[in-house]
Design a protein around this nucleic acid. Structure first.
Lengths: 344, 344
DNA sequence: GCTTGAACCTAAAACGATTTAGCTGCAATT
DNA sequence: AATTGCAGCTAAATCGTTTTAGGTTCAAGC
């Protein structure tokens, strides 16, 4: 049937196929054939054709047509990688929503959606290059391949990048080096001499920086270069597995700096299984990216950016870009906060 | 300046304002003035006008224009309420992505996005009524007001509703009554005589059903009607506060059935503070909606739907609706699974 | 004075769906 | 026989943006 089909199935295609006008087809598609008095037989023939030809409505066309000229609607996107934990985005979303709720007016509506790309394949996201999906986007959790793409093309609309520094975009990130350094200080203050750093296999710029700074800071204080324990993924299960393997090999480990909180949660589990107490035997530090880190058992000591501050900066930047009040790229650094809880 | 402005600022508006053609304006907006040899002065005047007039590009128009006729692109939305915990959606997202990745082809692209509505205000979501945003949607975490809206209008495109039963839509939900009953059985088997049920103040149909079934099942076995402990929100903090208050008043409480896992996490905290041991003094049961419930301390016993099964059913239904292989509404019930862990 | 080329800009079509106003033909009424 | 009314349909405009092919003007070269 579909030999060499290139053109899409449109309302017109169906109309021609059935031998009616596009208007009739549209009427049926909207289920308004009764009020518009289409003959039942015609409706059935149209329905049949719609099914046979596999019609898919073009939402862009519908939206353009349906658009009320009196209101501006702005589409914002929070773009994050598929592999990253979603609860991180939750915070951003909530704050962006609050910001747009405050700025909404009868003639100005916003819609915020979360869109996911496969890590390293941001460039394949539809509508990103030609600005045909969003009026403004927040991009986070990119991998180096994504960063390379972003560096190579400057998207011609409002973009704020979270968590890494790109010269051609507005960026908001944790002050580089600080998080890892503060974690090291806590370890040292607690008298820990053999801490390790627990990371996922896929490192983003931020997580890599935290790990590196942690090692550097320890070295500066004459502590041996800490081991890196690499977990397969981001989940507690993979963190637990990695820590369990490490503890079997290194009985002297007395501290764990996990570059994501979910890994720390896994570490808790592995330590419990191995009969080590937290914090008496082993201190654990996370980075405060889990919503409920203070309800872990024990509550997790965290060293990391104040997400609220970060998102606030992001939202501010995004809106000034959209209003064209700012045009030059800038980087905003947010210093980490330290929250000492039960795990150290 | 903007006295009685009704019409939006379009490319044409700017063109007229500057005295050039829309083509010139479009060229500048896309940053292609160099290759298209626009005079620097003109570019500057256009830029100025764009800023002054507060131009916002219409993404629908752009997308319609940019659209490649040889590929069908289908937009899927996962619609969930703002107040609901986002990690619930995470599962749905992952499975939907896997499903669409498997079905993607060079001439068939999908995009999945998460869109959030304020609980009870689903009807205000732009593009929902006129089908101008999505080719298909999954709706979850609705409040009664949203359900009433959905019942009153049958959206003319592919919709699957999660977690409640609506006659005019395809629905997938936990077998009604089962979850609460199984939780009650576990309490009774553990010899608990004074369990309570912990709920958020805003109940969805699913959470309300769990709580009610729990009470009914206990009553059937001759146990006194359990108290309902109502938390302000969904967070561990609000759960902890509610439980703390309850414990102060009712020293005999020996079991807690939390209708969301985050509330259970808060309950753990409150119990620890009050010096009660889990499960020795108080048993705690959740519903398995938290990704990491098995890494809580102690790991949380859960009674709830198998999310993977639920989402699988949802995705199957959604695609058969989009292909018009199914047209009649159906309800699919998924029986709960019971995962006994350390908290009972 | 005529041609050539560059610089700068425009006209018009196209993307796909929807709606409004109105047309046609037939049956029932006068 | 003329009018009215209705059932059942269509033509054409419209939404806002982008791009292609081409037009106009002016200066330089012959």
């Amino acid at each position: 049937m579909a030999r060499g089909v290139k053109r899409p199935v449109t309302v017109r295609t169906i109309a021609d196929h059935v031998g009616v006008s596009p208007a009739a087809v549209s009427t049926v598609l909207a289920n308004r054939h009764v009020e518009r008095r289409l003959a039942a037989a015609t409706v059935e023939r149209i329905r049949q054709a719609v099914r046979e030809l596999g019609y898919v409505p073009n939402v862009a066309a519908r939206r353009l047509r349906a658009h009320d000229p009196a209101v501006h609607s702005m589409d914002l996107g929070i773009l994050t990688s598929f592999e990253a934990p979603l609860f991180l985005v939750s915070r951003t979303l909530r704050q962006v929503q609050a910001a747009v709720d405050a700025r909404s007016a009868p003639d100005r509506r916003f819609s915020v959606s979360i869109d996911i790309f496969h890590a390293g394949r941001l460039r394949e996201m539809p509508g990103l290059l030609n600005a045909s999906r969003f009026n403004g986007v927040i991009i986070s959790n990119t991998l180096p391949a994504d960063d390379a793409f972003l560096r190579s093309t400057t998207l011609p609309y409002a973009v704020v990048v979270q968590g890494r520094r790109l010269e051609n975009y507005c960026c908001v990130l944790e002050t580089p080096g600080e998080g890892g350094r503060r974690a090291a200080e806590i370890m040292l203050a607690g008298g820990r001499r053999r801490p390790v750093v627990l990371t996922p296999a896929l490192l983003t710029e931020t997580t890599a920086d935290r790990a590196a700074a942690f090692c550097t800071a320890l070295a500066e204080h004459g502590v041996a270069e800490p081991h890196t324990v690499a977990a397969k993924g981001f989940t507690p299960a993979s963190g637990a597995a990695a820590v369990q393997a490490h503890l079997a090999a290194d009985r002297d480990c007395d501290g764990i700096f996990a570059v994501t909180d979910t890994l720390a949660l896994g570490a808790f589990h592995a330590l419990k299984v191995a009969g080590r107490r937290v914090p008496a035997d082993v201190a654990v530090i996370g980075v405060g990216d889990h919503e409920h880190a203070d309800f872990f058992a024990p509550p997790l000591t965290c060293v990391g950016p104040s997400y609220d501050l970060v998102v606030e900066e992001i939202v501010t930047l995004l809106f000034s870009l959209m209003n064209r009040r700012r045009v030059k790229p800038t980087a905003v650094f947010v210093p980490p906060t330290v929250t000492v809880r039960g795990s150290t």
